[in-house]
Structures are given as C-alpha cells and as structure tokens.
C-alpha cells in the first residue's frame, strides 16, 4: 500500500499490478473461445422463425460480449481512468450516430423497410 500511495499519478493507483492475474486471463480466454465456437454453431441454425435477421442479432450479441471482455480485462479498461472509458464508449456512440442517421435515410426510401 505504502508503495502505491507515493505514485499519486499512476493511473493504476488503487489496483494491485496484477489486475486479474493469470487465472483471470485464462478465464477471459475461455469465454472468448466459447463465444467463438458458439457463434459458429448458432450461425448454422435457422433462427428466421423468431424474426428475420435473428441470426445476425445473436451473432452481434456474442461479438459485443467478446469485445467487452477483451476491453475490460485484456485492455484494462476496468481499472482505467474514467476518461479512457469515455473515449472507448464515446467512439462507439459516434459510430452509432453514423449508422442511425444514414439508415434513417435508407429505411425511409420508397423501397426501404418503412418506405410505405
């Protein structure tokens, strides 16, 4: 403890340097592998009976989960200053602006989903 308080600028301040340690890293790794295998097999099932495009939604859900664990644990966002957290989330938010406002055009065209 004493050693940490002297480095008052270190962004890893209150954290033991280990973060989640080797077992933790292996755990994250397992989640990623399971996610990959899962996404592969779910893609083979036809989920269109739920609603058209359900396959894509599931695939993206898994991808988001994988991204989140990589970000939180491998990239140490979990222990990083709020600013780091904000720039990661902020960039995604910006991307969603681009998606949303572009698609509001395409989906409301004559041939778009909401076009009639």
């Amino acid at each position: 403890m004493a050693e940490q308080t002297t480095e008052h600028h270190n962004p890893h301040v209150e954290v033991p340097n280990e973060h989640i340690g080797i077992p933790g890293y292996l755990g994250v790794f397992t989640v990623l592998v399971v996610g990959t295998i899962l996404t592969y097999y779910v893609a083979l099932m036809d989920l269109d009976w739920i609603f058209p495009g359900a396959n894509t939604l599931v695939a993206l859900g898994i991808a988001f989960t994988k991204m989140t664990v990589v970000g939180l644990f491998f990239m140490h966002v979990r222990w990083s200053p709020r600013l780091v957290w904000m720039s990661a989330v902020g960039a995604f938010f910006w991307l969603s602006i681009m998606f949303a406002y572009t698609m509001q055009d395409y989906l409301t065209r004559g041939t778009g989903f909401f076009g009639h």
């Binding site: 990959t36 996404t39 592969y40 893609a43 083979l44 099932m45 036809d46 989920l47 269109d48 396959n55 894509t56 695939a59 993206l60 898994i62 991808a63």
Partner: peptide
Amino acid sequence: FPLLYLLGRH
C-alpha cells in the same frame, strides 16, 4: 468474422 463469414450459413 460473423459479419463476413457467417451471415448466410443458416
């Protein structure tokens, strides 16, 4: 990976 490789598998 999912967006390019998997979307038509079903």
